[in-house]
Design a protein around this nucleic acid. Structure first.
Lengths: 164, 164
DNA sequence: CAATTCCCGACTAAATTTGTCAACTATTAA
DNA sequence: TTAATAGTTGACAAATTTAGTCGGGAATTG
């Protein structure tokens, strides 16, 4: 298992999708805008997600993507595995007799490491993430109400205000 | 924290070094041959490892690299951090106000994930890896003795024998 | 038909990996 | 002692792979 920005983008997009699919198919254009990920890249990623049967697509106006399973049945590990082609981490082709007579020293190291990371990510589902995110947003909303009073200082730059 | 082949190569090389430095400095040429990693790439990686003060270099004949600290004090996390420049995983520059008013949804997800992985890798030291590897080699040796009887077939190539 | 949206392949940019060559250091021999 | 030599690190550039972009096409809806 590899951890790159590609996988992270995919998870971000899927999380966005999971939080909105109640209102029908979600367009990539929308995800692109909300998550600041280029539309082209999303199209590429969702092509893979679709081929891995994690999402379903609906064409035409009003179309977009929906999750192929319930959020609780889609793990972060599923998503990363779908977009991040394996690349055979162990350098020895997975074969046990990696090189010379003993298996390459790091074989077990990486096998174990991969298993550890994979197990962790397999436990994290879109369902649990959506739940956490909802809770966080509710809390943030409360904080913002209080912060608004403090932050209305005179020197508020254009870039700072646009950040809202 | 990112997980790529680069970091894996570095750990492999450091493990090789840790297992051999008792006999004095270890040359990159040796590591290259044993671990099947290009010499050039090793040179580049060890430049970073040296600058991060994980290894010391000795020039001239009989020179090579040695560990800068005892194996038990060098963790896999140290090694990966040394060679794999951070690249700011969270996509929002580490700032809390990633984008729009709420921090980008995945901010906490990746923060937690990174912490989990880092904690795991910080616990794994070269010392513990060497120990495991030594145990494994001893076990493999026993197996090989038994296998040797089966494998002493007539067609043993030159390359196969040189692999010993 | 026209608008919206997914879909696919070629293209560009960036990162990884390998290759080449220069600079340094200890040994060796005269 | 000094110069030659071989072993080694260090920096730079080429080649390969991966990440990300662009343009056009196809399906669906109204």
């Amino acid at each position: 298992m590899r951890l790159t920005t590609k996988g992270r983008f995919a998870v971000t997009a899927m999380l966005d999708l999971a939080m909105r699919e109640a209102n029908g198919p979600v367009t990539l254009a929308g995800i692109s805008e909300r998550q600041s990920i280029s539309l082209s890249y999303l199209e590429q990623l969702f092509g893979k997600l679709r081929r891995s049967e994690l999402v379903d697509s609906v064409r035409g106006p009003g179309g977009g993507y929906t999750l192929a399973r319930i959020p609780a049945d889609i793990s972060v590990a599923d998503i990363i595995a779908a977009v991040d082609e394996p690349v055979d981490a162990t350098q020895c082709g997975g074969r046990e007799n990696c090189h010379d007579n003993h298996r390459c020293m790091t074989h077990d190291l990486w096998t174990n490491l991969n298993a550890t990371i994979f197990d962790y990510l397999a436990k994290v589902t879109l369902g649990s993430l959506v739940e956490k995110q909802r809770a966080k947003e509710a809390a943030a909303k409360d904080n913002n109400v209080m912060q608004d009073k403090r932050e209305s200082s005179p020197r508020m730059t254009a870039s700072a205000s646009s950040a809202l």
